[in-house]
Amino acid sequence: MGALEGKAAIVTGSSRGIGAEVARLLAAEGAAVVVNYRQKAPRANKVVARIEEAGGRAVAVGADLTSPEGAQALVDAAKENFGGVDILVLNASGGMETGLGEDYAMRLNRDAQLNMLAAAASAMPAGSRVVFVTSHQAHFIDSVPTMPEYEPVARSKRAGEDALREQLPALEAKGISLVVVSGDMIEGTVTATLLDRARPGAIEARRADAGKLYSVEEFGAEVARMAAADVPSGHTEYVGGAESFLRQAQPEG
């Protein structure tokens, strides 16, 4: 019996990378998981197959979270397959892609997060947990500058975090807690790769400043841990390399 036995989880953006690892780990603790993908069904099906081979339960659901129907499709799948939603991991993010419109980062990193929360909260019982995944570069953007190439994404993710935090009173009235997980650049992720391509040496510079950068597996484990961690609603969990950001955000004197 895992710690999440009998629980149902939705993990957005979970066909690869951090989201896939979080889905796998939640399932390993007993949760039934909705694995979300936008376009790559075969990749999501592989995540589901891996979970099922390990004895877990999961279903892959295609949904574009920037569309009005996307969020509800995930909630409907959780209710139909697993009876409800107890854990919502808001992992899907982006904005460095080309050809999706100038407002895509804000639509995905703020508007879609709010829509997903609204859809899920209506099906979540007291005691449920929402986990929002962000980056130090976004979390601290109002006080610590980031690379120009990443700033629009960082500001949209910070806008998403702020919008979610505005929902804290309503969530707490329902007995639903919200936790934010903020991480440094993660080795092997699409965002880190794109940033290093736009600014060669960016990953190495962050690694030197932070001492080390977490892998997808290491960071995914920290996100999954927060799904049931004994922390208060509104808590921010800093994962790796936050010391330099905290020093700059709170200068001495």
Rank of each mutant, 00 (worst) to 15 (best):
K212A: 10
E243Y: 14
G211F: 10
H139R: 14
Y37Q: 02
E97M: 10
A73W: 05
V33W: 13
K212S: 13
H136L: 10
G240N: 14
A49G: 15
R199D: 07
E5R: 11
N45G: 15
A119S: 12
I18Q: 06
F82T: 03
R57E: 10
A58S: 04
A54W: 08
T12I: 06
I176E: 01
Y150M: 13
A118S: 15
A92N: 04
A3G: 04
R129Q: 08
A249D: 13
T191S: 12
E97N: 12
E97L: 07
Q248G: 15
V144C: 08
I203M: 10
F219R: 11
I176R: 08
L195D: 03
E29H: 14
T189C: 03
A8C: 06
L171C: 03
V239T: 12
K40M: 13
A92W: 12
P68E: 15
V181P: 00
L194A: 13
E237L: 14
G13W: 06
E29V: 03
L171Y: 01
E5F: 09
E69M: 07
K7Q: 15
D196I: 02
V34I: 15
P169R: 10
S122G: 14
E161R: 02
N91M: 06
I186V: 15
E166F: 08
A126T: 06
D196H: 05
A28N: 09
P251W: 09
E252Q: 14
S177Y: 00
I10V: 13
R16M: 07
V131C: 09
A92L: 08
D162S: 11
Q250L: 14
A221L: 01
P145G: 05
S128H: 06
E21W: 05
Q113P: 04
K46G: 12
E80C: 05
S233V: 03
I51C: 01
A28S: 14
V47Q: 10
L88V: 09
A227P: 07
I10M: 03
R107M: 13
A9S: 05
G240L: 14
G17N: 15
S182P: 03
S215F: 03
G6E: 01
A154C: 10
R38D: 09
G160F: 07
G201W: 09
S143G: 00
M124W: 07
S93T: 09
R206F: 04
G201V: 08
Q72C: 09
A3I: 07
D86I: 06
D230S: 11
L246Y: 04
L213N: 04
V61C: 06
S182A: 15
D209R: 15
M1N: 10
M116N: 10
E172I: 07
V33K: 13
A105M: 01
V131P: 05
V181M: 00
L108V: 02
S244G: 12
